[in-house]
């Protein structure tokens, strides 16, 4: 892929004083408009990887290119304009005391003219469905709403890529679904490339491509179907397999002819109907 928006070549990162490299030689291409999910247990290096995409961390060896720009100390701001980031804790990434002011923060940092900021903030808040709360105080919002504000703040900067670092981990199920669906919509409708780091298999299942990391390396890679059919390997990497795949395995053990790679409830219902017929 020559037109990859994210290109990693043997990228590695070692924290000061750490014995092992947190990311240990990752090579990866991400196409524009792709929805890539990254899975892995705690400490597998997935957050470190995401932080290199935003130049918060500079690779200690190897190369990371974002939109054709090499991630380095000098290019940090150029890289951040291409790749935005949404973090895990909704409280700790909101800067301002008013929703719309927070949304404007990134654009103000970049010195965008006030009228232009106004326009883009209104657009972004409409996009995430928070326009009517523009003047609210973030402390009065739910976790899911705060994450939507954080997304609006990133969207207003019109990045080509957004990295979500476990952005749904601290939310309740409703907020989690809202935020995930919003990310999917931004990906489908705006064509923004999404790197979605998560612990939740039911989210990874709906990505275009899944990579599973362990000890700083990519262990499995492919479409969700390909990755999750390696049930034993996925479990060995400290992850879960989607509920429906577990059910499929148990049903097969019980003698029903259900394909191993059944991922969603809808697919399972269809397969079971076939079995019944």
């Amino acid at each position: 892929m020559s037109d990859a928006i994210l290109r990693l070549r043997d990228a590695a990162f070692q924290y000061d004083g750490a014995e092992d490299r947190a990311v240990d030689g990752v090579s990866l291409d991400v196409a524009p408009g792709e929805f890539l999910a990254i899975l892995g247990r705690n400490g597998s290096g997935k957050s470190t990887l995401a932080r290199m995409l935003n130049a918060l961390l500079i690779p200690t060896s190897g190369a990371v290119e974002v939109g054709g720009i090499a991630v380095s100390e000098e290019n940090a701001y150029a890289v951040r304009e291409i790749c935005g980031m949404v973090f895990q804790n909704p409280d700790n990434q909101i800067v301002a005391t008013v929703v719309e002011e927070d949304c404007a923060f990134g654009l103000e940092n970049r010195g965008v003219p006030p009228e232009e900021i106004r326009r883009r903030v209104d657009e972004a808040l409409t996009e995430v469905g928070m326009r009517e709360r523009a003047l609210a105080s973030p402390s009065m919002l739910s976790g899911g709403q705060k994450q939507r504000i954080a997304i609006a703040g990133v969207l207003a900067m019109r990045p080509k890529v957004i990295a979500f670092d476990e952005s749904t981990a601290m939310l309740d199920p409703v907020g989690r679904r809202d935020v995930f669906e919003l990310a999917r919509r931004i990906n489908r409708e705006e064509g923004v490339t999404v790197v979605w780091i998560t612990h939740f298999m039911e989210e990874a299942v709906r990505a275009d491509r899944v990579i599973v990391m362990d000890r700083g390396r990519i262990e499995l890679e492919g479409t969700p179907r390909e990755v999750f059919s390696n049930v034993q390997e996925v479990l060995a990497l400290g992850l879960d397999v989607p509920e429906m795949m577990k059910l499929a395995r148990d049903l097969r053990a019980a003698g029903l002819d259900v394909p191993m790679d059944t991922l969603t409830v809808e697919e399972m219902a269809e397969e079971l109907c076939k079995c019944g017929a």
Binding site: Y77, R80, E81, N109, P114, I117, R118
Partner: peptide
């Protein structure tokens, strides 16, 4: 302190680099 650390990271991710060259939405 943990919050401060994360907030600093989030601000940096949103291109914060002090007051120089900054504009304001509300004039």
């Amino acid at each position: 302190f943990r919050r401060a650390d994360e907030l600093a990271m989030a601000m940096e991710a949103r291109c914060y680099h002090g007051g120089a060259g900054r504009t304001k939405m509300k004039q």
